[in-house]
Design a protein around this nucleic acid. Structure first.
Length: 485
DNA sequence: ATGTCC
């Protein structure tokens, strides 16, 4: 048997790109790591493997805890981790969702080509930077009163479209049509609502950005046609989350769950995995609050997208409809969701935790929007500023291998602190400009933290996803210009 | 990720 020895943990090779940490001690299932040896080398000396192993201690864990090809260590549970926990007899764990609830990405297509944008990069970026709030702290596109917050948390993108920030077609291209029906705004603390109120429609900081990109390759023509993607086309990528509101929801419930369910916590190997038993009051409340934060993040991306349409109208002196600025899809990268999955021939209701992982439902799945049902769900995988991004489609193996999931990005290689010691923002911007990528940022430190060199090779991550058949390559993009927090 | 420490 082929094995891989990491720092204190031995993985057994199941088949190409599939590694297993065998069940032992209090593990309830084995853990699986989906990676090439090159990707394993990147996580062999940090806590990633220990964390995915720890996740198998969670009650109700089904089949395996799974680490995606872009996995790296996170709070308690790896970023790039998938944990399907029984929704009746298992539990739900905020640390396995992540602090930035529904951090995610949406892509908008256009009928512009690279030639239309070339030479206008600076004007475009300056206009976007002036019109899309970014960076830490407050200030959003909408100043929300109490009614607005309730509407956003309860009704998601439906609220935004009613208020004039988008059109009905936008709903059809969004997972759950932009509304998580299980949302319970009353489970969101006043403090969380107050933090969210003046951040409605704002990018935030860290790895969040708005990027204008050009399509450089289409690998599957039939799927590219269904997604309206073609070479040299200009597309817009928006990456952001639920800002202070989601962060506060996560923090509020972690503290409550640690206290209320200390007995369960005592049996777990890491305090950061704190979980509420399925059916408990806190499990229901956290789920309702998390779903409300999901809606908030969707509205956030919707408002930024609609504002981007307005900016393009001014810069290119055409209506956004004339430029065919359509939402391709919006994917959530940090959520837990009740889903039915076939487990050993039986349909089971599971809380599928995807933390830094993307839903990847294949062709034919009833929850894939009608426009894409014949080809599979669009998946958007942002790379780093210098590397570009990918569009995939849900692969045929995702339902049997990964509870309908794949990777979410390149995955960090270096901590933010280490990045700031290694890079200087201005130098990174100069180097990117030499590659034809124009970046404007609120903070030079953020540019250093997000330098292309701090990320894994997105090509390798996507190659493994494609080879496993969980998310298939459809198109590749390269950045043209970018605004950051 | 995050009013980067309640």
């Amino acid at each position: 048997m082929t094995t891989y020895d990491a720092d204190g943990i031995t993985l057994e090779k199941v088949r190409e790109y599939v590694w297993e940490i065998p069940q032992e001690g209090d593990m309830r299932t084995p853990a699986r790591v989906l990676a090439s040896e090159a990707l394993l080398d990147e996580i062999s000396d940090d806590k990633t493997l220990q964390q995915i192993k720890n996740a198998t201690h969670l009650p109700g864990i089904t089949n395996h805890a799974i680490c995606m090809p872009d996995g790296h260590q996170g709070y308690g549970f790896p970023v790039g981790g998938v944990g399907a926990l029984d929704a009746k007899n298992g539990c739900i764990s905020p640390g396995a969702v992540g602090y930035d609830i529904n951090c995610g990405v949406r892509m908008m297509t256009t009928n512009l080509t690279y030639d239309d944008v070339r030479g206008n990069e600076e004007e475009l970026v300056d206009a976007l930077f002036a019109n899309v709030p970014s960076g830490l702290g407050g200030g959003g596109i909408v100043k929300g009163d109490a009614d607005a917050i309730e509407g956003i948390l309860a009704r998601g993108v439906e609220w935004a479209v009613e208020e004039g920030y988008g059109v009905e077609d936008d709903l059809r291209a969004c997972e759950d049509e932009g509304r998580r029906p299980d949302a319970d705004p009353s489970a969101v603390s006043q403090k969380a609502k107050d933090r969210g109120r003046n951040q409605i429609g704002s990018l935030g900081s860290g790895n969040h950005f708005l990027e204008i990109q050009r399509v450089t390759d289409v690998f599957r023509e039939d799927v590219g046609d269904a997604f309206d993607l073609r070479e040299d086309q200009i597309v817009v990528l928006i990456h952001c989350g639920s800002r202070g509101l989601g962060h506060q929801v996560c923090n509020d419930y972690l503290r409550k769950i640690e206290k209320q369910h200390a007995d369960l916590l005592d049996r777990l190997p890491d305090k950061e995995l704190a979980a509420a038993p399925a059916g408990s009051e806190l499990a229901e409340e956290y789920y309702g609050a998390m779903c409300a934060a999901i809606n908030f993040a969707w509205v956030n991306r919707q408002l930024i997208m609609h504002r981007t349409r307005r900016v393009f109208e001014r810069v290119f002196d055409r209506t956004w409809e004339q430029m065919e600025m359509q939402l391709l899809y919006d994917v959530a990268h940090n959520i837990a969701k009740k889903e039915s999955h076939d487990v050993d021939g039986e349909s089971r209701e599971l809380y599928v935790h995807r933390k830094g992982a993307t839903r990847a439902f294949p062709a034919g799945h009833p929850e894939v929007p009608a426009a894409y049902r014949d080809v599979g769900q669009p998946i958007i995988i942002p790379g780093s500023m210098g590397a570009g991004s990918y569009v995939l489609r849900g692969g045929d193996k995702s339902m049997t291998e990964t509870f309908g999931s794949t990777a979410h990005g390149a995955g960090r290689l270096m901590s933010r602190t280490a990045a700031k010691d290694t890079y200087w923002g201005g130098d990174v911007q100069d180097e990117l400009e030499q590659d034809g990528v124009y970046v404007k940022a609120q903070s030079g430190a953020t540019v250093a933290e997000e330098a292309p060199g701090v990320y894994k090779d997105v090509d390798e991550v996507v190659r493994v996803s494609d080879a496993l058949g969980i998310g298939d390559k459809v198109a590749r993009t390269f950045p043209v210009c970018n605004i950051k927090g």
